[in-house]
Amino acid sequence: MKKKLISYAVNLLLTAGIYTVFALLIQGGVINRYYEGLLINIGINIILAVSLNLVTGFLGQLVLGHAGFMSVGAYAAALVTLNSGLPEAAAFPLALLAGMLAAAIVGFLIGIPALRMKGDYLAIITLGFGEIIRVIVLALDFTGGARGLRGIPSLADFTWVYVLMAVTVYVIFTLIRSRQGRAIISIREDEIAAEAAGIHTTYYKMLAFVLAAALAGLAGGLYAHHIGILTPAKFDFNYSVEILIMVVLGGMGSITGSVVAAIILTILPEALRSFADYRMVLYSVVLIIMMLFKPSGLLGEFEFSLASIGRKLRARFFGGAVSRKED
């Protein structure tokens, strides 16, 4: 128990340390607005990738409509900020909450029929729902239709995104290590065996699905208040695929992998900007080669943990066998 507390404290310090470094760099003007925007995009993509990993990597259900949930959250949050009449500082947390809630409700409603499906059929059905959400947003009046929703105040600064990103990663990580998480993983390993062992599969599937949808909604809310303009075209099938690529490339079932892949895949298109027209061709070639030579993703199911690094260092310098009992 004590070890666990120490490890939590170390991780918290590390998270705060990274934040402080970036915050100081931004304050000092070393990181300009362009790079700050990039950091915010990375944070949003990490939330999306990690939450999709919960469903696709740990629950083992292929979902192709994550951008749909994100758009529900984005529009709900933006509409709250624009119409609530509250001061911006008070409206923003409320808006994010509304975005999460709206996405969770939509996720629940879609989950009822969709989670009866398996494998590729679940993928197709979520794809279908994702497209339906997009078309409905396009057709509605109060969402601004194809012109989009404009003039959303940009309230999502680096601090907001970083804190919420850290909380998301923490929540998913602890969930996976908990009793509920083991139930979710058991469904991935063998659904029939899990059910036979007394696990309420429908409940846990729905739990993971709704939580992932809510977090996608959160990412959507942050996105809306970062970019300032929402158009339905942004949240199409291709964006869902982009998030899925992050999950698979990082390694399904590795939260560290999702984080790393989200960072790489957000930076890669920007870094390739100097290649101009060749950018997306290179991106796709890199993707194909990665998948060909490392089909399980960059990190497989590996998780970064300070405890295991400490263990290895101790074993190297003080000798003795590497004990795995400590965690």
Binding site: T56, L62, V241, L244, I245, V248, L249, M252, D277, Y278, M280, V281, Y283, S284, V285, L287, I288, M291, L292, P295, S296, G297
Partner: peptide
Amino acid sequence: NAPRISLLITAIGVSIFLQNLFQL
């Protein structure tokens, strides 16, 4: 015998490649 989802992502990669190659 790679996981089927890796195959799926490769297919998506090929799709992005073809689209952008022809755009080029």
